[in-house]
Measured scan of single mutants.
Amino acid sequence: MDSLVVLVLCLSCLLLLSLWRQSSGRGKLPPGPTPLPVIGNILQIGIKDISKSLTNLSKVYGPVFTLYFGLKPIVVLHGYEAVKEALIDLGEEFSGRGIFPLAERANRGFGIVFSNGKKWKEIRRFSLMTLRNFGMGKRSIEDRVQEEARCLVEELRKTKASPCDPTFILGCAPCNVICSIIFHKRFDYKDQQFLNLMEKLNENIKILSSPWIQICNNFSPIIDYFPGTHNKLLKNVAFMKSYILEKVKEHQESMDMNNPQDFIDCFLMKMEKEKHNQPSEFTIESLENTAVDLFGAGTETTSTTLRYALLLLLKHPEVTAKVQEEIERVIGRNRSPCMQDRSHMPYTDAVVHEVQRYIDLLPTSLPHAVTCDIKFRNYLIPKGTTILISLTSVLHDNKEFPNPEMFDPHHFLDEGGNFKKSKYFMPFSAGKRICVGEALAGMELFLFLTSILQNFNLKSLVDPKNLDTTPVVNGFASVPPFYQLCFIPV
């Protein structure tokens, strides 16, 4: 009986604490739906499609509103004006990374994606500088992407125009580009180590996009005490870190300090320079996690976009025909596509942009946080508050993009057929937390897609009208449904 009384008292205290925290903070924060004790607004949000729920709530509470995930307040920004004001106009104040408990377990605050403060700034600055020195957006990395595009075309030829699921092959190409940047090595598509790495990356994007992960991140005790797919994700990350550590040891034994070959060499050189400046942010643990982040951000996002792009091109054969006509006119058949071609191919450029806009790969991006107490639109948001960005509300804005739910390359073309930029184009987020590999991803999408369409016609196994382009999961990332196609050599 005594234990029951204690339990009831504990629960009562928890409920009172929950109510007090919510009521004391709500006077400062933007308005929002009334949260339930302990669980907050979790029942009012469709976990399978958070973005749709945010759109519905914005119609009631406006472009800036507050939700509670458990006891934790989260300020939501919906629509271009609110997102721009926060991420661009007040970029420094909104540059923090929001709480992501599962990532905390995986990387302990290291790396480039989930770190904060001085650690994040130094690692991000170093990573950007190193990638630029190796030619991100310049010639040397373009050579690597072109080489991988040629290998991709050869792998597709091996399908002999038979029906195939493109998931694996389209994942190999961007993964190999990242391998060449980090390890100075590309792998054969049949290499077992490479296959294991690909498998872990593919599993992780599916797990991260599941409703279960949303629950884990908002009720963090689940991570330590409950079984579930989150444990598989943590094991996959541990596998990748151990693999990278092996490569780091190989580099330490063979590195030429006067001739760095890749990202690992550059990081080890930085560690050597910083060894007298303790404590340094440049450690082996930081290198492991930064490399894992580059793999995660640079492989599955690009391969998922490529997979979605081919599905949309199957669905819209008239678009595919126009792209192939432009390829034939500008590039021809006797040389590989290059980035200089893009400025002469406005329709193809528009298609690449429209694919990214339409699929809305990361509907709410990753959570941000404010780095200080900030007054925002007459609300006071306390330091450390998590900020949720609705990228969907920007990419699918119906004023900027008429009929935003329709796939239409003319969203990025003017009346004369010239490519038209849009400030609403934010597939990689915006501001200080914009994806480090934005330029690389854009290069890969253009070169891989043009190389495929230069060499193959795409054949659907069903009537294009019957192809479903609805994402199968739409949590962290929008993942396309399973499909097969035939690559018919031109």
Rank of each mutant, 00 (worst) to 15 (best):
D2T: 09
V8G: 11
L14E: 00
L14C: 09
G25S: 13
R26T: 08
R26P: 08
G27T: 09
L29F: 07
G32C: 04
G32E: 00
P37A: 04
N41E: 01
D49F: 01
I50R: 09
I50T: 10
L54E: 00
L67V: 14
G70D: 03
G70W: 05
I74A: 02
H78P: 02
K84S: 10
E85K: 04
D89A: 04
G91C: 11
G96T: 10
I99Y: 09
F100K: 05
L102D: 06
E104S: 13
I112D: 11
I112A: 13
G117L: 04
G117P: 06
R125Q: 10
M129L: 11
R132F: 09
K138Q: 13
K138M: 10
R139C: 12
R144C: 12
V145Q: 02
V153R: 01
C164L: 11
P166L: 00
P166Q: 02
T167L: 03
F168P: 07
C172R: 04
A173F: 02
C175M: 13
N176R: 01
I181M: 09
K185D: 08
D188R: 05
Y189G: 03
Y189Q: 03
L195R: 13
L201R: 03
L208Q: 11
P211G: 10
P211Q: 08
Q214R: 11
Q214P: 08
Q214M: 11
Q214Y: 13
K232E: 06
L234C: 12
N236A: 02
N236M: 02
K241Q: 10
I244S: 02
I244C: 12
K247A: 09
V248S: 04
E253T: 05
M257W: 10
D262R: 03
F263V: 06
F263S: 04
I264K: 03
F267N: 05
M269C: 14
M269Y: 09
K270L: 08
H276N: 10
N277S: 12
N277F: 12
S280V: 11
F282V: 05
F282S: 03
S286C: 13
A291S: 08
R307W: 01
R307M: 04
Y308H: 08
L314K: 00
H316A: 05
P317R: 06
K322A: 12
E326K: 00
E328V: 14
I331G: 01
C338V: 09
M339D: 08
P346N: 05
T348N: 01
V352S: 04
V355Q: 01
Q356D: 03
R357S: 01
P363C: 10
L366N: 02
V370T: 14
T371W: 08
R377Y: 06
K383Q: 07
K383G: 06
H396Q: 13
D397E: 07
N398I: 12
N398V: 12
F401D: 08
M406G: 10
F412R: 01
L413N: 01
D414Q: 05
F419A: 02
S422F: 04
P427Q: 14
S429D: 05
G431T: 04
I434A: 15
V436Y: 06
V436L: 15
G442W: 03
L447M: 14
S451K: 08
N466A: 13
N466S: 12
P471I: 04
V472T: 07
A477G: 13
Y483V: 02
L485E: 00
F487Y: 02
V490H: 12
